[in-house]
Design a protein around this nucleic acid. Structure first.
Lengths: 212, 212
DNA sequence: TGAAATAAATTAACAGTGTTAAGTATATTT
DNA sequence: AAATATACTTAACACTGTTAATTTATTTCA
């Protein structure tokens, strides 16, 4: 009775099981296709049961959004071993880019979609955007250390960090949303899309290098 | 018989009337709430009539997306009177930002949503992304002129243009999607959100100025 | 142990979505 | 006047998130 066993396991912590099921559907079909009914079918419960554990779909979106931040911060772990702050900043950018491309659905949920944010606007989730802030702080700290090493002198640290993040965020979204592909389509110089993405990043790195 | 007169006028060019109705609902309630049924109710026709003039909702999204580009390019007209290329670039950025804030729904449709792009992927619309390309070309040309004036020397023009656009796009989306607000919330230095947005832009301008 | 109270899950329903196939008037052509 | 073509509508499908009311299961207490 594999199904029954699974059901018992589910009951132990149904909230987590719902999230797991949501994640499964989400990864296989994207957020758009992740309906309450599909999640319910996955765990063999009624759709309305989900509302006993999550206030609404936004709260599930927020939970997935948190998962995404856990993933990203794990990938950021390796940065601790990069001593030179500017090298660390570059590595950070590359990790961020890679994450955005390889987990574009998560990226969407973390930085583009409004649904997960609505969750703590509607009072579902108590905390503020701790995950996002932590990630941003890591960037601010690295930039601060770059400044101590002679880079970006005369720039207000927070504003500069926002510029850097904006650039990376803009580039990643333009890539994953297809605008980059459309723009580059007939531009002879940057024929390959992959190149446009990488070249733009490298160009940005050159810009930063010039600010020493 | 105001209604009947209107109906006759509609029949003259129903396709345009549908678009006008779509725009009305879209501006009043945003794209999410712009349903086929609402558009139909607006022009007092059956919902299915719309499918006689537009293949699907993506095609309507694309039509609105075109309207947005017309609006933006109109606002860009004033740039012709700005002689100095770097001043023009800055003005371009400010116009872009203002447009994104004041017409955030249009901006969403033009640069973030995938639906309008699907329209010419699904063969609804013949042309490529001409509007986007034209806007991007304006940016490339300005940057090229900046380079001739001694700015951004040694940078590949197209890549540099993509960096600039990425930064502006990233900043605007972070603003309109609320991330900027959340990040700044507890950062003591940039308490005001409006300030964070403006300050980041100004910081970016300083970055560009340093590349002379 | 058996009845009452509590908790957990379900059924049915609401109000909406994009979209399609089939049917009905209206206008045009033969 | 009959046949054809055009324009539009009705009805329906297969979904969506969400809520209220109801049933089922578990626990508490006399």
């Amino acid at each position: 009775m594999g199904i029954k066993e699974r059901k018992i396991k589910h009951k132990e912590d149904l909230k987590q099981s719902i999230l797991d099921a949501a994640k499964k559907v989400f990864l296989a079909e994207g957020y758009e296709a992740t309906s309450i009914r599909k999640i319910a079918a996955e765990i063999e419960f009624s759709p309305t049961t989900i509302y006993l554990y999550y206030k609404d779909k936004n709260e599930i979106a927020h939970a997935l959004h948190e998962e995404g931040f856990k993933m990203l911060s794990e990938k950021f772990q390796v940065l601790a071993h990069v001593e030179h702050p500017f090298e660390r900043l570059k590595a950070m950018g590359r990790i961020y880019m890679q994450f955005a491309l390889e987990n574009s659905d998560y990226y969407e949920l973390m930085f583009i979609m409004k649904d997960p944010i609505k969750a703590f606007e509607n009072g579902c989730v108590e905390e503020e955007w701790d995950e996002g802030k932590r990630a941003f702080n890591a960037l601010v700290n690295t930039i601060q250390q770059c400044q101590q090493a002679g880079y970006f002198k005369g720039f207000e640290t927070n504003s500069f960090a926002l510029v850097v993040w904006s650039t990376m965020h803009g580039l990643c979204t333009m890539k994953t949303h297809g605008q980059l592909e459309l723009i580059v389509q007939r531009k002879e110089i940057l024929t390959d899309v992959k190149d446009a993405f990488t070249h733009t990043f490298e160009c940005f790195v050159h810009v930063l290098e010039r600010l020493k």
